[in-house]
Design a protein around this nucleic acid. Structure first.
Lengths: 343, 343
DNA sequence: GTGAAAGCGCTAACAG
DNA sequence: CTGTTAGCGCTTTCAC
């Protein structure tokens, strides 16, 4: 027979029942060593591998967790996932990744798709989403964890950092260097609590020193190079010109640096630029980019652990009866060449 | 009842059989409009979503294709996947991604995991792998496509480009600029036909002009910044010093640029540097990096189509009876500031 | 420690 | 166009 061997084939070959083979595969210690070896030999001989669908149907678990990230274009999400995957792999759990392109409707759709595929848990980025989505999640009784965000009174389990505090801290460093004319190339705040919190953080730092961040000094744009260049160009045309461009992330900051140069100015002598995330290019740019380091690997790893703890049947099943602990991670401001004193 | 509704629940609520509900879900046109509406109402009312395991078991298909990429750290793979995913999404197929960390054993393991999860198809990178893996693939009768590689006489369906030709072409451009002392910061060739082909390409171009690429002028290292810096540093210490560092990819080239500067030299006045891939940072570096553009998005898209064509039951099922066409994509050399004339 | 047997939820013949 | 019915491969009581 050419087709895929089943439990029954193995059972027949080993001269045992299907139940025993199942035990050998899932709970080897509950089988006598001698029997187990016979079964394992048959498994190896036939090249048996359990059928995913059959298992999912009978056990009502898939050994899969899903993640919906905004995009794979920004390597920082991909890296966080990689760390997460390593942690999950160790537990025999597979990660299913979907992207939303920073679009709330797409995200909701992807979540539904993942739930439809029977994921046992879910990792989502940020907190801002339609209440209906949270209701859906509860209805399916699928445990989930939010990453890239953290605030003290969130009703949901988070493994992330305080975007507001991190941005405020960064802005304080900028202010410490004498900058007063500050402009922001921000991410799109719609459906994005992180982008919004970063603006609020900068504004709070300024107001604490009696300065205001004028609405006209903040431009929101997609987290991509070209929009970043465009936005920065507009801001640099203001009179008087800002002395620093605080950017919503490193990609925008890379664009801002180009725009500064395209305007015949120098970074940081004429205009300073700061980023956020500390992606790899931050250090490769010339001058290297001052930014906020986000512990993306640790975040991924801890998110995985959080979820695994609630998936473990020993810990009370997938119901997540007990409120799982949120985790606040620290960010770190990295002073680098792109941030200089105010001219 | 709190628990998840089943087909039968819907059937009862709509006063039809389970078969009809199944048809409404899968092949709506085969159901009378009136009946369909009744069923759809019941589906909406109960919040029914098909159970993945049940479906997979009954139909023996999962609507999933798997991909094993070396790493997510390099955004270029992630981007290719994104394009692929978009194409697959349109066909209602989900992409399952795994990473191998450029390790053949890990890759084999990931392939097995994916097969175990019942993927309907696979996307793999490159051609070099243990024959046992190809046998496994055939045994499971799962269609697969190889990307990032292409050669005329490959026995497997490929959607990629000719690494050898692309590297030879690049080396010719380098030679055209008068360079004679050429050194290479190459990727690790073990289990990596692309890295190997790129070295061969450079060597072929040199030999065609009566030059030799000495083994000591080629250093293999992991595709990461730090090893790239280290390797370049070693090569720059040679006497006489090479006038150009041809790098296995853009990440290594970024490292090489740093090493050149760290040695107190200038790019490209003292030492030219070239990359491969054309990732985003290539254009952001100062000077911008001369490199080979790889059509990663198109590659992802076309690979998806190739696979979908063989997945489509109308096209003969998953058996892939007819040999599917390989596709050769073109690369393009991008002359940029990091490549200058030989000093 | 092991076996028998009853489903898990769905699809796909086949009949009507 | 719709219903009946027989599994798909596996897990999981419950006996033995």
């Amino acid at each position: 027979m050419r087709s895929r061997p089943t439990l029954e084939d193995v059972a027949r070959a080993a001269g045992v029942s299907t139940a025993t083979v199942s035990r050998v595969v899932n709970t080897p210690d509950r089988v006598r060593a001698e029997t187990r070896q016979r079964v394992e030999a048959a498994v190896a001989e036939l090249g048996y591998a359990p059928h995913f669908g059959g298992r999912a149907l009978a056990s009502n678990r898939t050994g899969t967790v899903g993640a919906v990230i905004p995009t794979m274009e920004n390597a920082i999400f991909a890296r966080g996932l990689q760390a997460m995957q390593e942690e999950l792999d160790a537990a025999g759990v597979t990660l299913l990744v979907a992207t939303s392109d920073y679009d709330a409707a797409k995200e909701a759709h992807q979540i539904q798709t993942l739930l439809g595929r029977g994921v046992d848990g879910l990792v989502l980025i940020g907190e801002a989403r339609d209440p209906a989505v949270y209701e859906l999640l509860e209805r399916f009784e699928v445990p989930f964890v939010l990453v890239w965000t953290w605030r003290a009174d969130s009703p949901w389990p988070c493994v992330g950092f305080d975007n507001f505090a991190a941005a405020r801290d960064l802005a304080e460093r900028v202010l410490d260097r004498g900058h007063r004319r500050i402009a922001m190339v921000a991410g799109v705040t719609r459906d994005n609590d992180r982008a919004e919190a970063r603006i609020r953080g900068v504004r709070a730092a300024m107001e604490a020193r009696g300065l205001a961040l004028a609405p006209s000094a903040v431009v929101e744009c997609d987290y991509r190079i070209e929009p970043g260049i465009e936005a920065a160009r507009g801001l640099l045309a203001a009179v008087p010109r800002p002395t620093v461009l605080i950017c919503g992330n490193d990609v925008l900051a890379a664009g801002a640096c180009r725009a500064v140069r395209a305007a015949g100015l120098r970074v940081p002598e004429d205009v300073s630029v700061t980023g956020f995330d500390n992606i790899e290019i931050a250090e490769l740019l010339e001058p290297p980019l001052a930014t906020v380091h986000v512990p993306h690997r640790r975040m991924g790893r801890m998110a995985a652990r959080n979820l695994l703890a609630r998936l473990d049947p020993a810990a009370g099943g997938a119901c997540g009866a007990e409120r799982p602990a949120s985790l606040r991670l620290e960010t770190e401001f990295l002073a680098r060449g792109s941030l200089g004193p105010a001219p």
